[in-house]
Nucleic acid binder design. Sequence first.
DNA 1: ATGAGTGCAAATGTTTTGCATTGGC
DNA 2: GCCAATGCAAAACATTTGCACTCAT
Lengths: 152, 152
Amino acid sequence: MREQLEALLKKQGFKITNQRKAIISAFLNSKKHLLTAAEVHDIVNKDNNTLNFSTVYRNLEILLKTGLIKRVNLDNGVNSYELNIDNHHHHHLICLACGDTETITYCPIEEINKNIQQSSKFTPIDHKLEIYGYCIKCNRNNEKSSEKQSNT
Amino acid sequence: MREQLEALLKKQGFKITNQRKAIISAFLNSKKHLLTAAEVHDIVNKDNNTLNFSTVYRNLEILLKTGLIKRVNLDNGVNSYELNIDNHHHHHLICLACGDTETITYCPIEEINKNIQQSSKFTPIDHKLEIYGYCIKCNRNNEKSSEKQSNT
DNA sequence: ATGAGTGCAAATGTTTTGCATTGGC
DNA sequence: GCCAATGCAAAACATTTGCACTCAT
């Protein structure tokens, strides 16, 4: 997998530096699939302390332009990035309690496009859909703690 | 309209200062319905140069918490705000060429929720949907002269 | 007159940039 | 060896905060 991503970079004329390898590895090895620039920086520097923030940002920009990653900005205002393997289109469920994100493959774009065509002359190209709520884990926590509060 | 919004603020214990009036007026009088903090600041200070950035941010936060406005963060990474009159749920069409935003009332949330229930234990609370593409104006420009690019 | 609200200035956090140096090809 | 890529430091933005002063109530 890492080889394939590096090959894609190389094919587009970019050099395969240790920093780029490390950034790609950070995405591949992390349990979280959505990472901020700061998280990428921290993950790589946990092992060897040699990755500068400028390099992180410059490379995230390159990985973005070459299509290896996608950018997502959640409600916290910070940009997150994720691997864009196989151009696999999907959306996110974001837990309002713990911040964990889940991926859903379901996408309502066809229904949306149909409706836009009817109501507007706008030509849709891309879209962004994120759903905020509570994950299983935090749902369970809420059930337990709501016994104390007993409201609603 | 302004009176109603100010009454809502007052009812929740907030004082009606000139700065708050000016910020509310900025939203009410602007052609754009999505405004950034900087735009609010500039609009108000075009008339009288007395509104500080801290005050803008502090008041946007208050208007957010009292439900008078909503926050939207588009792909540029900067927060935008819009009036939340009548709790009127809607989404946005954002032109990739000129940046103009259009509002659509259509919302696919029911279909989305149905699907989430089937595939996940996640409990949806809120969601964010934005559609990027080209507005009528820029569509027309592209057809006429594809070499001429629009500003942002 | 009192505390909420404001202005100011400084801090914080994220992202970008100029420039000299380094390292992949 | 060449030029892209990096590190460093500083700048550019967006946003937040501490503190003294002001103004709506």
